[in-house]
Write a protein that binds this DNA or RNA. Structure first.
Lengths: 186, 186
DNA sequence: CGATAATTTCAGAAAGAACTGAAACAAGAA
DNA sequence: TTCTTGTTTCAGTTCTTTCTGAAATTATCG
């Protein structure tokens, strides 16, 4: 697999960003390469193109699988496995968001829930709990909102996104409607 | 500064999560401690309570400052500096999102923009560019959407959030209105 | 059933990130 | 100015993560 200059730039960039996106350098590179490659690639091709060890590729594939970001393909008369990105860009973004939510938010949320069950045992702890409650509520909102967006079909999501600056207008519109028809909505 | 068991659990947990949230362990701990502490704390108190070196605290404060997450206070007749969280929980969330956008999305976006300016030099590159364009558009949507949300006042944001599952309904409503009044909206 | 072709695992090496502590620096107070 | 009290810096150390490569494992073919 030969890369043009631009392709290599992209792949390497995704490597740098990899760690910021929740996985590591090589995994970022691997996924980038699979994304821009027209044909599915074998583990060996990944290893050679990216100059990383075969073992490392194997671990990377395992990780990408656990994120459900790649699919495995077989070619007739060929024992090797070939890999390609799973699903559309939208689905990929969804998966990444979901995984990150699981890792970055859920654990904190459950710790906070536990902590808030008990009565505060003194003044300082009472204050701490009010702050924790704020954070809890914020995180809960974020997760609810996120899962809401995930349930939305890609088309609707796209509409909502394209709406952009219109969200504010929509809220205003809704306020008017609500005022007219009385307080019957959430 | 003495911590109850629950407070310590929270602080330590934020430490573990720190790296997932874009900063490191000690910085997570420091910020958590400042959040749940009623009084502003001095660098020495942070150092002692968390059992980390004075120098490390200093670096942490620098970092938290660059994220605009803490404010510095002075007590009359006391040379020390005291630190406390800056702004509300909402503001904090905003800051974190913004910083992360800057680090995780903006660089990629500008790379993609550059890359997409040039004509593809061969078949494979043409395919790569179509994929890159998809990613570009997705990232652009996300950033626009995010900055949109940031411009929203906290109250509106809160309304929008509480709306939750209602977003779908709202979209439907909007569709009906649009159909009735013709195609005059975005 | 071997023999062969591929994938996975994992101990140790290498690279990278975070932390310490002592020295340098800064800002009043006397 | 000099002394005191506080903050910052940074070279070296420690801790963590990632990567390699050889050995173990699994799967397929004849």
């Amino acid at each position: 697999m030969e890369l043009t200059e631009k392709m290599e730039a992209f792949v390497m960039h995704c490597g740098e960003m990899g760690s910021r996106w929740g996985f590591n350098r090589t995994i970022g590179q691997m996924y980038a390469l699979l994304l821009i490659s027209e044909e599915p690639l074998s583990a060996n091709e990944l290893s050679q193109t990216l100059h990383i060890s075969r073992g490392n590729v194997s671990m990377g594939i395992k990780e990408l699988n656990s994120w459900q970001l790649i699919a495995t393909k077989h070619k007739p008369g060929d024992r090797k496995e070939y890999y390609q990105p799973a699903g559309s860009i939208w689905q990929m973004a969804n998966r990444v968001f979901e995984q990150r939510r699981k890792r970055e938010i859920d654990p904190t949320l459950s710790l906070l829930r536990d902590s808030l069950l008990d009565e505060p045992s003194n003044q300082g702890e009472a204050y701490a709990q009010t702050r924790m409650l704020e954070i809890h509520d914020l995180l809960e909102m974020i997760t609810e909102w996120a899962s809401e967006l995930q349930r939305l079909s890609p088309e609707k999501l796209s509409t909502l996104m394209r709406l952009g600056a219109g969200v504010t207008k929509m809220l205003d519109l809704r306020d008017k409607l609500t005022l007219k028809s009385g307080k019957d909505n959430a």
